[in-house]
Amino acid sequence: TRVETATETAWISLVTALHLVLGLSAVLGLLLLRWQFPAHYRRLRHALW
């Protein structure tokens, strides 16, 4: 049971790290898009909202 718990903890930390990385890359990508294509971003936002 001790090994299982350790594996579970490792998986949880791995998944958390993955989610953090994905979230950060998504935010960075959005910022980059907004910085590179302001007109396109505004049009996209206008279409979405």
Rank of each mutant, 00 (worst) to 15 (best):
T9S: 11
L48V: 10
A10K: 11
R42E: 12
S25R: 06
A26E: 00
L22V: 12
L33I: 09
R34F: 05
L30C: 13
A10I: 06
T1W: 10
E8S: 04
V15S: 03
T7N: 12
F37D: 04
T9H: 09
R2S: 12
E4N: 14
H40V: 10
G29S: 13
V27D: 05
L48P: 01
L14H: 03
T1A: 12
R2G: 10
A10W: 02
L24V: 11
L31Y: 12
G29T: 15
L30Q: 02
L30M: 12
T9V: 12
G23H: 00
L20V: 12
V21Y: 03
V27W: 08
L33Y: 02
W49Y: 14
L28R: 04
G23E: 05
Q36H: 15
S25W: 01
R42C: 07
L33V: 09
T9E: 11
L48I: 13
A39K: 15
T7L: 12
G23S: 09
W35Y: 15
L14K: 02
L31E: 02
T7M: 15
W35S: 15
L18C: 03
F37R: 04
L14D: 03
R45F: 10
R45K: 13
T16S: 09
R34I: 06
W49P: 03
R42V: 11
L30W: 10
Y41A: 15
S25Q: 09
I12E: 05
L24K: 06
L44S: 04
L44W: 10
A39H: 12
L48K: 05
E4W: 12
V3L: 11
V21P: 06
T7S: 14
A39Y: 11
R42I: 08
V3Y: 02
A6N: 06
R34T: 08
A26G: 10
V3P: 01
L14T: 05
H19A: 05
V27S: 08
A17N: 01
R34C: 06
L14M: 14
L24Y: 04
R43W: 06
V27F: 12
H46W: 01
L44G: 03
Q36E: 15
L28N: 06
Q36C: 07
G23D: 05
P38R: 14
L33M: 09
P38F: 08
I12R: 09
I12Y: 08
R42P: 00
L48G: 01
L48C: 12
T5F: 00
L28Y: 09
R43C: 07
Q36T: 15
L44I: 14
L18W: 13
T7C: 03
V15N: 04
A17T: 08
H40Q: 11
S25L: 07
A10P: 04
T7K: 13
T7E: 04
H19F: 00
L32Q: 06
R42L: 12
L30V: 10
A6Q: 11
T7D: 07
L18R: 03
W11N: 02
V3M: 04
I12D: 01
L22I: 12
V27M: 10
W11V: 06
S13K: 05
A26S: 10
W35F: 15
A47T: 09
L28A: 06
S13I: 14
P38W: 07
S13W: 14
Y41W: 15
T9D: 06
A17F: 08
L44H: 08
E8D: 09
H19W: 03
I12V: 12
L44C: 09
H40M: 14
L18H: 00
L32P: 10
R45S: 07
T16D: 00
T9N: 09
L14Q: 02
V15R: 04
T7I: 11
L24W: 07
L48T: 02
Y41K: 08
R2I: 12
R42M: 11
T9W: 10
L33E: 06
A17G: 05
T16N: 05
P38N: 10
P38C: 02
A26C: 12
L20F: 12
E8T: 11
A47P: 06
L18I: 04
L31P: 06
G29N: 03
H19Y: 04
A17V: 12
R34D: 01
S25Y: 01
L20K: 05
L20M: 10
T9F: 08
